[in-house]
Amino acid sequence: MSTGCVSPDGRLSEKALGLLKLLEEKGALTPVEIAEITKRPLFQVRSSLRELTEAGFIASSEGEKYSLTEKGRAALS
């Protein structure tokens, strides 16, 4: 189910671009850290992260830290 981050043709919403920019600026972050910075509810952050992960823009490592993939960095350039 789409959270509105990625459109069917693969384009990113403002909200999604904002999340990718945040990860570019701060490095790897947990959902709790992102929720605190963006003041968005935790469940909504996790939902967006899931969609961006499935679309290949970000990836998570151990400890639920999310960071940009090559595709994510390319989307911002």
Binding site: M1, T3, G4, L42, F43, Q44, R46, S47
Partner: peptide, 17 residues
């Protein structure tokens, strides 16, 4: 499910709360 604030996966998305 879909909610008024977007899709959710329950209870995973609410872990820690």
């Amino acid at each position: 499910a879909m909610t008024t604030m977007g899709p959710i996966k329950f209870p995973e998305d609410f872990k820690g709360q």
